[in-house]
Simulated assay, not measured.
Amino acid sequence: MSLPSITFTGFVYRAHHPRWAYDPESGLGASRHGGRFNRPGTAALYTALRMETAWLEAQQGFPFKAQPMTMCGYEVHCDGVVDLTSNAAIDALGIDPGDLACPWEDMADRGETPPTWQLADRLIAGGAAGVIIPSFADHAGPYDRNLVFWKWGKDAPYKVCVVDDHGRLPKDDRSWK
């Protein structure tokens, strides 16, 4: 089955723990712990289509007690992105929209496999580089969307590069030792 994919060109954003500011393109945290759209051991880079959404995602559960974050923008030109905010794509793939909002962490903690992990496995096996999904963060609205990458690098067709024109990000983690 051919995936209903698009080429995403533009900018995305990520607010992450300052501890990892020296490596904002790694996706290692998601690989270690898993996420809504990746099981542990599967690398993923979670980003948002708006800065406000990136902030909501990073402050999960604490929207009014802001914690320090490093906000990064990324320039993207990525083929193979599946837009699961599109009813046509959801229908073409036979996805139950309710599965996207599953309580993935609770399921994983109980030893169950969340349907979003199964979906991610299927899309990755089909050649998808990433997926656009609604944000499920507290206080997220209809314009809050995320783009999760499973394939990314410095060059097209999977270009996802942090914007740091002035070299402001640290080069290593020595300040955290």
Rank of each mutant, 00 (worst) to 15 (best):
W55A: 15
T116K: 01
L119S: 02
G27V: 02
G41M: 05
L84V: 02
C102S: 10
G61H: 04
F8G: 15
P40H: 03
G153R: 05
K159A: 12
R39T: 09
P97C: 09
E52V: 07
G61Y: 01
V163H: 07
A156M: 06
P63E: 11
C102N: 05
D79S: 12
A88L: 09
F8A: 15
F62N: 15
K151M: 12
D109T: 08
C102W: 03
A89Q: 02
P157Q: 11
D91G: 03
P63D: 11
Y22A: 14
Q59N: 15
T9W: 01
S5N: 07
K177T: 02
G111T: 02
A44R: 05
A120K: 02
D144L: 06
R145F: 03
D164T: 08
Q118Y: 01
V148I: 15
V163Y: 05
R145V: 07
G61D: 08
D164Q: 08
P24Y: 04
E52F: 06
N87T: 12
A125I: 07
W55T: 15
V82D: 07
P97R: 11
A101P: 05
K65C: 09
D144Q: 05
R110Y: 04
P134L: 07
G130V: 05
D138E: 09
P142T: 06
V163F: 08
L169R: 02
R39E: 14
G10H: 02
T116P: 06
D138Q: 08
K151H: 14
F62I: 14
P18K: 11
T113E: 14
Q60W: 15
T7H: 13
G126W: 04
A120I: 03
K154V: 05
S86Y: 13
D96M: 01
T113Q: 13
A58C: 10
D173N: 14
L28I: 13
G10N: 11
S86D: 14
L119I: 06
S2V: 09
G127D: 08
C102A: 14
I124W: 01
G41Y: 05
V76N: 00
G61L: 08
K159N: 05
D109K: 14
P4I: 01
T85D: 07
G80F: 00
T116A: 00
A89T: 04
T116N: 00
T42L: 12
D138G: 06
R110W: 03
F37W: 08
D144S: 09
V82E: 06
A101K: 12
H16D: 14
L123T: 00
I124R: 15
G111N: 03
L93E: 00
P18H: 09
G130C: 03
G153L: 08
